[in-house]
Computed example of a mutant assay.
Amino acid sequence: MNIKHHPTDETLLAYASGTLSQAMELVIATHMTLCPQCREKVAEFEACGGAMLNGTDGLAMNVDALDQVMAMIEQEGANENTIPAPLASPRRVAVAPSMRGNAVPSLPTPLASLLPENILSLEDIPWRTLAPGVKHFPLKSVQTKGSVRLLKIAPGISIPDHGHGGHEMTLLLKGSYIDDVGRFCAGDVADLTDDTDHQPIADTAEDCICLIATDAPLKFNGILPKLLQPFIGM
Rank of each mutant, 00 (worst) to 15 (best):
L151N: 03
G165N: 01
D194V: 06
M169S: 13
D191M: 01
E168Q: 14
L192T: 14
G166M: 07
H162D: 02
T170I: 15
A190C: 08
D207F: 01
T196N: 07
I212Q: 11
H164I: 04
G182N: 01
D195N: 15
D197A: 11
G187M: 08
E206N: 09
D203C: 04
D188N: 12
T214Q: 11
D188Q: 10
G166P: 04
I209G: 07
D215V: 12
A190F: 04
D195F: 04
A154F: 02
H162F: 01
G163E: 00
S176N: 13
Y177M: 13
G165H: 01
G187R: 10
Q199E: 07
K152F: 08
G165M: 00
Y177K: 05
D195L: 02
V189S: 01
P155L: 05
S176A: 15
P160M: 00
D195R: 15
M169Q: 14
L173V: 05
P155D: 04
K174C: 03
L172T: 15
H162C: 01
D191W: 03
G156A: 04
G166H: 08
L173E: 00
T193G: 13
D203W: 01
I178N: 10
K152W: 07
I212C: 07
D207G: 03
A154D: 05
V181I: 10
D195A: 14
A202V: 06
A213V: 03
L151E: 14
F184R: 06
I153N: 03
L172K: 10
K174F: 06
L192N: 13
K174V: 00
A186T: 12
H167Y: 14
D191L: 06
P200N: 13
S158G: 02
I157C: 10
Q199D: 04
L173D: 02
P200K: 07
A205T: 13
G182M: 06
I201R: 15
C208E: 07
F184I: 12
T214N: 13
I153G: 03
H164P: 06
